[in-house]
């Protein structure tokens, strides 16, 4: 059985609905499921052993969508957290956080599946907080500078 199907059964047995999209060759699949309000995807490459990565996306509020600054914030968090990578997507409206879980037997991946999901979620939350914090700091600084310029 294709490893993606086995993993889908595992996620279902853990209580979660799963949608699986396999490519035509059948050696790659994306599994999509929800957990704690977030939508996650697991990419499975059916090698020997199979390769897995786990990802989710976060929306950046419109007022905080400054690509250069957000790219820096994401890189900072990636450096702090380790093991995850970030990418801005949809013209800077969202970012994707991905944990490369490497090539390993399915059972090994399943044994720490939820902790991998938690790592992705926590890294994403940290990144979003960093982006919002910087934006809010900048907004406050701008107000201050503006008021000084006006001589109030």
């Amino acid at each position: 059985m294709f490893v993606g199907e086995e993993l889908a059964r595992f996620i279902q047995s853990e209580g979660h609905r799963v949608e699986m999209v396999a490519d035509e060759s059948g050696d790659r699949a994306e599994l999509i499921f929800r957990a704690r309000g977030y939508i996650f995807s697991v990419n499975v490459h059916d090698e020997n052993p199979p390769h897995f990565d786990v990802a989710t996306a976060y929306e950046i509020p419109p007022w905080a969508r400054e690509r250069a600054q957000n790219a820096t914030a994401l890189q900072d968090v990636a450096n702090d957290v380790g093991g995850v990578r970030f990418a801005l997507a949809a013209n800077g409206k969202t970012f994707v956080v991905t944990l490369d879980c490497g090539s390993r037997p399915l059972q090994a991946f399943q044994s720490d599946f939820w902790s991998s999901v938690a790592r992705v979620r926590d890294a994403g939350v940290s990144a979003l907080e960093r982006i919002l914090d910087r934006s809010e700091s900048r907004a406050a600084a701008n107000k201050f500078i503006t008021s000084l310029t006006r001589g109030e």
Partner: peptide
Amino acid sequence: LEEEGLFCTRDDDADALRIAFKSEGD
């Protein structure tokens, strides 16, 4: 539960209405 992407089962009887479900295996 469906919105949370979770399966569930019902187990009602004369006294109570019950839903059982799992999340992250718990």
